[in-house]
Design a protein around this nucleic acid. Structure first.
Lengths: 157, 157
DNA sequence: GCCTAACCTTGATTCATTCAAGATATTGGG
DNA sequence: CCCAATATCTTGAATGAATCAAGGTTAGGC
Protein backbone atom coordinates (compact mmCIF):
# COMPACT_ATOMS: atom_id res chain seq x y z
CA UNK A 1 0.00 0.00 0.00
CA UNK A 2 1.68 3.19 -1.20
CA UNK A 3 1.99 6.07 1.24
CA UNK A 4 0.98 9.66 0.70
CA UNK A 5 4.53 10.62 -0.14
CA UNK A 6 4.59 7.89 -2.78
CA UNK A 7 1.64 9.55 -4.46
CA UNK A 8 3.34 12.93 -4.17
CA UNK A 9 6.38 11.39 -5.80
CA UNK A 10 4.26 10.01 -8.63
CA UNK A 11 2.74 13.40 -9.28
CA UNK A 12 6.12 15.10 -9.37
CA UNK A 13 7.53 12.58 -11.83
CA UNK A 14 4.92 13.64 -14.36
CA UNK A 15 5.29 17.34 -13.56
CA UNK A 16 1.90 17.71 -11.94
CA UNK A 17 1.51 19.92 -8.90
CA UNK A 18 0.93 18.16 -5.62
CA UNK A 19 -2.47 19.06 -4.26
CA UNK A 20 -4.77 17.52 -1.71
CA UNK A 21 -7.44 16.56 -4.26
CA UNK A 22 -4.88 14.87 -6.49
CA UNK A 23 -3.30 12.80 -3.75
CA UNK A 24 -6.75 11.83 -2.49
CA UNK A 25 -7.95 10.78 -5.95
CA UNK A 26 -4.77 8.79 -6.58
CA UNK A 27 -5.22 7.03 -3.27
CA UNK A 28 -8.84 6.24 -4.10
CA UNK A 29 -8.00 4.82 -7.52
CA UNK A 30 -5.26 2.61 -6.03
CA UNK A 31 -7.57 1.47 -3.24
CA UNK A 32 -10.58 0.58 -5.36
CA UNK A 33 -9.67 -0.47 -8.89
CA UNK A 34 -12.38 -0.05 -11.55
CA UNK A 35 -14.31 2.45 -9.44
CA UNK A 36 -16.45 4.97 -11.28
CA UNK A 37 -16.23 8.71 -10.76
CA UNK A 38 -19.04 8.82 -8.23
CA UNK A 39 -17.41 6.15 -6.08
CA UNK A 40 -14.11 7.97 -6.28
CA UNK A 41 -15.78 11.18 -5.16
CA UNK A 42 -17.37 9.33 -2.25
CA UNK A 43 -14.08 7.70 -1.26
CA UNK A 44 -12.20 10.96 -1.43
CA UNK A 45 -14.77 12.71 0.75
CA UNK A 46 -15.02 9.86 3.21
CA UNK A 47 -11.27 9.71 3.73
CA UNK A 48 -10.98 13.44 4.07
CA UNK A 49 -13.67 13.13 6.72
CA UNK A 50 -14.70 16.69 5.97
CA UNK A 51 -12.05 17.86 8.39
CA UNK A 52 -9.60 18.72 5.68
CA UNK A 53 -11.91 20.69 3.46
CA UNK A 54 -14.26 19.68 0.69
CA UNK A 55 -13.33 18.37 -2.72
CA UNK A 56 -15.71 19.38 -5.48
CA UNK A 57 -16.97 16.89 -8.01
CA UNK A 58 -15.53 19.11 -10.72
CA UNK A 59 -12.10 18.86 -9.13
CA UNK A 60 -12.33 15.07 -9.22
CA UNK A 61 -13.29 15.15 -12.90
CA UNK A 62 -10.40 17.52 -13.62
CA UNK A 63 -7.94 15.47 -11.62
CA UNK A 64 -8.94 12.21 -13.27
CA UNK A 65 -8.51 13.83 -16.65
CA UNK A 66 -5.07 15.16 -15.71
CA UNK A 67 -3.96 11.85 -14.23
CA UNK A 68 -5.21 9.97 -17.28
CA UNK A 69 -3.44 12.35 -19.65
CA UNK A 70 -0.26 11.96 -17.59
CA UNK A 71 -0.54 8.18 -17.74
CA UNK A 72 -0.80 7.72 -13.96
CA UNK A 73 -4.25 6.16 -14.23
CA UNK A 74 -6.09 4.41 -17.01
CA UNK A 75 -9.65 5.16 -17.96
CA UNK A 76 -11.84 2.26 -19.03
CA UNK A 77 -15.41 2.35 -20.19
CA UNK A 78 -17.09 -0.88 -21.30
CA UNK A 79 -20.20 -0.36 -23.43
CA UNK A 80 -23.12 0.73 -21.32
CA UNK A 81 -20.97 1.72 -18.35
CA UNK A 82 -19.87 5.05 -17.00
CA UNK A 83 -16.14 5.82 -16.97
CA UNK A 84 -14.05 3.77 -14.56
CA UNK A 85 -10.45 4.15 -13.51
CA UNK A 86 -7.60 1.90 -12.48
CA UNK A 87 -3.99 2.30 -11.46
CA UNK A 88 -2.49 -0.53 -13.48
CA UNK A 89 -1.09 1.19 -16.55
CA UNK A 90 1.29 0.30 -19.30
CA UNK A 91 1.05 -3.46 -18.93
CA UNK A 92 -1.66 -3.87 -21.56
CA UNK A 93 -3.84 -6.06 -19.43
CA UNK A 94 -7.49 -6.56 -20.30
CA UNK A 95 -10.86 -6.91 -18.59
CA UNK A 96 -13.71 -9.34 -18.04
CA UNK A 97 -17.06 -7.64 -17.55
CA UNK A 98 -20.12 -9.31 -16.04
CA UNK A 99 -23.19 -8.76 -18.20
CA UNK A 100 -25.46 -8.93 -15.17
CA UNK A 101 -23.85 -6.91 -12.40
CA UNK A 102 -21.17 -4.99 -14.30
CA UNK A 103 -18.33 -6.22 -12.13
CA UNK A 104 -14.95 -5.87 -13.80
CA UNK A 105 -11.91 -8.08 -13.23
CA UNK A 106 -8.42 -7.85 -14.65
CA UNK A 107 -7.15 -10.40 -17.12
CA UNK A 108 -3.58 -10.59 -18.25
CA UNK A 109 -2.84 -10.25 -21.91
CA UNK A 110 -4.37 -13.06 -23.92
CA UNK A 111 -1.50 -13.75 -26.27
CA UNK A 112 1.79 -12.02 -25.62
CA UNK A 113 3.12 -8.61 -24.74
CA UNK A 114 2.20 -5.10 -25.84
CA UNK A 115 0.72 -5.01 -28.37
CA UNK A 116 -0.60 -8.49 -27.90
CA UNK A 117 -2.81 -8.39 -30.94
CA UNK A 118 -2.30 -7.51 -34.55
CA UNK A 119 -5.20 -6.66 -36.80
CA UNK A 120 -5.57 -8.93 -39.80
CA UNK A 121 -6.04 -5.86 -41.99
CA UNK A 122 -5.45 -2.45 -40.45
CA UNK A 123 -7.52 -0.59 -43.08
CA UNK A 124 -4.76 1.97 -43.36
CA UNK A 125 -5.04 2.99 -39.70
CA UNK A 126 -1.97 3.62 -37.56
CA UNK A 127 -2.89 1.33 -34.68
CA UNK A 128 -1.27 2.01 -31.31
CA UNK A 129 -3.38 -0.09 -28.94
CA UNK A 130 -5.47 -3.23 -28.94
CA UNK A 131 -8.09 -3.28 -26.22
CA UNK A 132 -9.88 -6.50 -25.33
CA UNK A 133 -13.08 -6.81 -23.34
CA UNK A 134 -14.34 -10.24 -22.42
CA UNK A 135 -18.08 -10.42 -21.75
CA UNK A 136 -19.76 -13.02 -19.60
CA UNK A 137 -21.07 -13.79 -16.15
CA UNK A 138 -19.11 -13.40 -12.94
CA UNK A 139 -18.99 -16.33 -10.50
CA UNK A 140 -21.79 -14.87 -8.36
CA UNK A 141 -24.16 -14.09 -11.21
CA UNK A 142 -23.63 -17.36 -13.05
CA UNK A 143 -24.91 -19.28 -10.03
CA UNK A 144 -27.71 -16.84 -9.19
CA UNK A 145 -29.06 -15.98 -12.62
CA UNK A 146 -32.12 -14.00 -11.50
CA UNK A 147 -30.43 -11.45 -9.32
CA UNK A 148 -30.68 -8.05 -10.94
CA UNK A 149 -27.83 -5.65 -11.38
CA UNK A 150 -29.45 -3.30 -8.91
CA UNK A 151 -29.83 -5.97 -6.28
CA UNK A 152 -26.24 -6.92 -6.86
CA UNK A 153 -25.12 -3.37 -6.26
CA UNK A 154 -27.19 -3.10 -3.12
CA UNK A 155 -25.70 -6.30 -1.83
CA UNK A 156 -22.22 -4.87 -2.13
CA UNK A 157 -22.94 -1.69 -0.22
CA UNK B 1 -28.88 -3.95 -51.44
CA UNK B 2 -31.72 -5.68 -49.62
CA UNK B 3 -35.26 -4.69 -50.52
CA UNK B 4 -38.05 -3.67 -48.19
CA UNK B 5 -39.52 -7.15 -48.31
CA UNK B 6 -36.14 -8.58 -47.29
CA UNK B 7 -36.27 -6.47 -44.15
CA UNK B 8 -39.84 -7.58 -43.52
CA UNK B 9 -38.65 -11.14 -43.88
CA UNK B 10 -35.86 -10.55 -41.39
CA UNK B 11 -38.29 -9.14 -38.85
CA UNK B 12 -40.65 -12.08 -39.20
CA UNK B 13 -37.88 -14.61 -38.74
CA UNK B 14 -37.25 -13.21 -35.29
CA UNK B 15 -40.96 -12.90 -34.48
CA UNK B 16 -41.02 -9.12 -34.49
CA UNK B 17 -44.00 -7.28 -35.93
CA UNK B 18 -43.41 -5.54 -39.21
CA UNK B 19 -43.82 -1.81 -38.80
CA UNK B 20 -42.75 1.18 -40.82
CA UNK B 21 -40.30 2.45 -38.19
CA UNK B 22 -38.63 -0.95 -37.94
CA UNK B 23 -38.16 -1.39 -41.67
CA UNK B 24 -36.88 2.17 -41.94
CA UNK B 25 -34.39 1.70 -39.09
CA UNK B 26 -33.17 -1.61 -40.51
CA UNK B 27 -32.66 0.03 -43.87
CA UNK B 28 -30.74 2.89 -42.26
CA UNK B 29 -28.45 0.56 -40.32
CA UNK B 30 -27.70 -1.48 -43.44
CA UNK B 31 -27.07 1.68 -45.46
CA UNK B 32 -24.76 3.43 -43.01
CA UNK B 33 -22.79 1.03 -40.83
CA UNK B 34 -21.53 2.40 -37.48
CA UNK B 35 -24.04 5.25 -37.50
CA UNK B 36 -25.12 6.63 -34.15
CA UNK B 37 -28.73 6.97 -33.07
CA UNK B 38 -29.02 10.58 -34.16
CA UNK B 39 -27.79 9.78 -37.65
CA UNK B 40 -30.19 6.87 -37.87
CA UNK B 41 -33.06 9.13 -36.85
CA UNK B 42 -32.01 11.63 -39.51
CA UNK B 43 -31.72 8.95 -42.17
CA UNK B 44 -35.08 7.46 -41.30
CA UNK B 45 -36.78 10.83 -41.46
CA UNK B 46 -35.02 11.86 -44.66
CA UNK B 47 -36.03 8.67 -46.47
CA UNK B 48 -39.57 8.89 -45.26
CA UNK B 49 -39.54 12.39 -46.69
CA UNK B 50 -42.15 13.33 -44.15
CA UNK B 51 -44.78 12.10 -46.59
CA UNK B 52 -45.21 8.79 -44.83
CA UNK B 53 -45.64 10.06 -41.33
CA UNK B 54 -43.16 10.95 -38.63
CA UNK B 55 -41.02 8.58 -36.66
CA UNK B 56 -40.36 9.65 -33.09
CA UNK B 57 -36.91 9.51 -31.60
CA UNK B 58 -38.29 7.24 -28.92
CA UNK B 59 -39.49 4.80 -31.56
CA UNK B 60 -35.97 4.64 -33.01
CA UNK B 61 -34.51 3.96 -29.57
CA UNK B 62 -37.12 1.26 -28.95
CA UNK B 63 -36.61 -0.30 -32.36
CA UNK B 64 -32.83 -0.36 -32.02
CA UNK B 65 -33.20 -2.04 -28.66
CA UNK B 66 -35.59 -4.65 -30.06
CA UNK B 67 -33.42 -5.31 -33.10
CA UNK B 68 -30.33 -5.64 -30.92
CA UNK B 69 -32.08 -8.03 -28.55
CA UNK B 70 -33.26 -10.07 -31.52
CA UNK B 71 -29.73 -10.19 -32.93
CA UNK B 72 -30.60 -8.40 -36.17
CA UNK B 73 -28.23 -5.54 -35.43
CA UNK B 74 -25.22 -5.19 -33.22
CA UNK B 75 -24.66 -2.31 -30.87
CA UNK B 76 -21.12 -1.03 -30.44
CA UNK B 77 -19.90 1.71 -28.17
CA UNK B 78 -16.19 2.47 -28.01
CA UNK B 79 -15.13 4.40 -24.92
CA UNK B 80 -16.13 8.03 -25.17
CA UNK B 81 -18.58 7.43 -27.99
CA UNK B 82 -22.34 7.31 -28.12
CA UNK B 83 -23.97 4.02 -29.14
CA UNK B 84 -23.50 2.98 -32.75
CA UNK B 85 -25.11 0.19 -34.72
CA UNK B 86 -24.17 -2.14 -37.54
CA UNK B 87 -25.81 -4.94 -39.48
CA UNK B 88 -22.92 -7.40 -39.51
CA UNK B 89 -23.72 -9.80 -36.71
CA UNK B 90 -22.56 -13.18 -35.62
CA UNK B 91 -19.23 -13.10 -37.42
CA UNK B 92 -17.26 -11.81 -34.46
CA UNK B 93 -15.49 -9.12 -36.42
CA UNK B 94 -13.82 -6.25 -34.61
CA UNK B 95 -13.25 -2.52 -35.02
CA UNK B 96 -10.55 0.08 -35.51
CA UNK B 97 -11.43 3.45 -34.03
CA UNK B 98 -9.69 6.70 -34.92
CA UNK B 99 -8.66 8.61 -31.80
CA UNK B 100 -9.01 11.93 -33.61
CA UNK B 101 -12.20 11.82 -35.64
CA UNK B 102 -13.94 8.78 -34.18
CA UNK B 103 -14.29 7.00 -37.52
CA UNK B 104 -14.85 3.27 -37.16
CA UNK B 105 -13.84 0.58 -39.63
CA UNK B 106 -14.40 -3.16 -39.55
CA UNK B 107 -11.54 -5.56 -39.01
CA UNK B 108 -11.88 -9.28 -39.42
CA UNK B 109 -11.07 -11.50 -36.52
CA UNK B 110 -7.37 -11.55 -35.77
CA UNK B 111 -7.12 -15.21 -34.90
CA UNK B 112 -9.97 -17.44 -35.86
CA UNK B 113 -13.67 -17.80 -35.36
CA UNK B 114 -15.98 -16.98 -32.47
CA UNK B 115 -14.66 -16.67 -29.89
CA UNK B 116 -11.36 -15.72 -31.41
CA UNK B 117 -9.63 -15.11 -28.11
CA UNK B 118 -9.22 -16.99 -24.89
CA UNK B 119 -8.43 -15.21 -21.66
CA UNK B 120 -5.25 -16.34 -19.96
CA UNK B 121 -7.18 -16.61 -16.69
CA UNK B 122 -10.94 -16.24 -16.76
CA UNK B 123 -11.20 -15.31 -13.04
CA UNK B 124 -14.12 -17.70 -12.70
CA UNK B 125 -16.24 -15.84 -15.24
CA UNK B 126 -18.32 -17.66 -17.86
CA UNK B 127 -17.04 -15.79 -20.90
CA UNK B 128 -19.23 -15.77 -24.00
CA UNK B 129 -17.64 -13.06 -26.11
CA UNK B 130 -14.28 -11.46 -26.71
CA UNK B 131 -14.55 -7.94 -28.09
CA UNK B 132 -11.52 -6.22 -29.56
CA UNK B 133 -11.14 -2.51 -30.23
CA UNK B 134 -8.04 -1.28 -32.02
CA UNK B 135 -7.22 2.37 -31.33
CA UNK B 136 -5.19 4.57 -33.63
CA UNK B 137 -5.39 7.14 -36.38
CA UNK B 138 -7.35 6.76 -39.58
CA UNK B 139 -5.57 7.44 -42.91
CA UNK B 140 -6.95 10.99 -43.10
CA UNK B 141 -6.05 11.99 -39.56
CA UNK B 142 -2.58 10.45 -39.59
CA UNK B 143 -1.59 12.68 -42.50
CA UNK B 144 -3.33 15.80 -41.16
CA UNK B 145 -2.54 15.63 -37.47
CA UNK B 146 -3.91 19.02 -36.47
CA UNK B 147 -7.42 18.66 -37.80
CA UNK B 148 -9.85 18.48 -34.93
CA UNK B 149 -12.61 15.95 -34.59
CA UNK B 150 -15.14 18.71 -35.05
CA UNK B 151 -13.53 19.93 -38.23
CA UNK B 152 -13.42 16.36 -39.43
CA UNK B 153 -17.10 15.94 -38.83
CA UNK B 154 -17.88 19.18 -40.61
CA UNK B 155 -15.82 18.08 -43.57
CA UNK B 156 -17.93 14.98 -43.97
CA UNK B 157 -21.26 16.77 -43.99
C1' DG C 1 8.04 36.44 0.31
C1' DC C 2 5.88 37.24 -4.53
C1' DC C 3 4.03 36.25 -8.83
C1' DT C 4 1.67 33.70 -12.10
C1' DA C 5 0.08 29.84 -14.22
C1' DA C 6 -2.14 26.01 -12.68
C1' DC C 7 -5.64 24.50 -9.97
C1' DC C 8 -10.05 24.38 -7.46
C1' DT C 9 -15.02 25.93 -6.25
C1' DT C 10 -19.63 27.10 -7.27
C1' DG C 11 -23.35 26.83 -10.16
C1' DA C 12 -25.37 26.29 -14.55
C1' DT C 13 -25.75 23.59 -18.81
C1' DT C 14 -25.59 19.97 -22.26
C1' DC C 15 -27.28 15.98 -24.38
C1' DA C 16 -27.76 10.93 -24.97
C1' DT C 17 -30.82 8.04 -23.08
C1' DT C 18 -34.69 6.54 -20.40
C1' DC C 19 -39.28 6.87 -18.14
C1' DA C 20 -44.35 7.42 -18.26
C1' DA C 21 -48.97 7.53 -19.97
C1' DG C 22 -51.97 7.22 -23.37
C1' DA C 23 -53.01 6.53 -28.52
C1' DT C 24 -52.39 3.47 -32.55
C1' DA C 25 -51.55 -0.48 -35.33
C1' DT C 26 -50.24 -5.46 -36.21
C1' DT C 27 -51.62 -10.00 -36.26
C1' DG C 28 -53.80 -14.42 -35.00
C1' DG C 29 -58.30 -16.26 -34.35
C1' DG C 30 -63.34 -16.13 -35.00
C1' DC D 1 -63.23 -9.78 -43.31
C1' DC D 2 -63.38 -8.08 -38.69
C1' DC D 3 -62.04 -7.96 -33.74
C1' DA D 4 -59.72 -8.44 -29.68
C1' DA D 5 -55.34 -8.61 -27.46
C1' DT D 6 -51.23 -6.58 -26.91
C1' DA D 7 -47.14 -5.03 -29.04
C1' DT D 8 -45.67 -0.85 -30.68
C1' DC D 9 -45.57 4.08 -31.33
C1' DT D 10 -46.23 9.21 -29.95
C1' DT D 11 -45.79 13.00 -26.99
C1' DG D 12 -43.62 15.15 -23.36
C1' DA D 13 -40.98 15.09 -19.25
C1' DA D 14 -37.08 13.42 -16.52
C1' DT D 15 -32.51 11.51 -15.51
C1' DG D 16 -27.72 11.73 -14.84
C1' DA D 17 -22.89 11.60 -16.35
C1' DA D 18 -20.10 14.85 -18.02
C1' DT D 19 -18.82 19.44 -19.44
C1' DC D 20 -18.71 24.52 -19.51
C1' DA D 21 -17.95 29.08 -17.42
C1' DA D 22 -16.41 32.59 -14.27
C1' DG D 23 -14.02 33.77 -10.51
C1' DG D 24 -11.23 32.73 -6.31
C1' DT D 25 -7.13 30.07 -4.40
C1' DT D 26 -2.62 27.97 -4.21
C1' DA D 27 1.72 25.48 -5.48
C1' DG D 28 6.18 26.19 -6.68
C1' DG D 29 9.75 28.76 -9.32
C1' DC D 30 12.09 33.15 -8.82
Amino acid sequence: MPSTSDYEQLLRTVALRVTRPRVAVLRAVYARPHADTDSIIATVRAEAGDHAGRVSHQAVYDVLRALTAAGLVRRIQPAGSVARYESRTGDNHHHVVCRTCGTIADVDCAVGDTPCLVASDDRGFEIDEAEVVYWGLCPDCSTQPDRTARQELDRRV
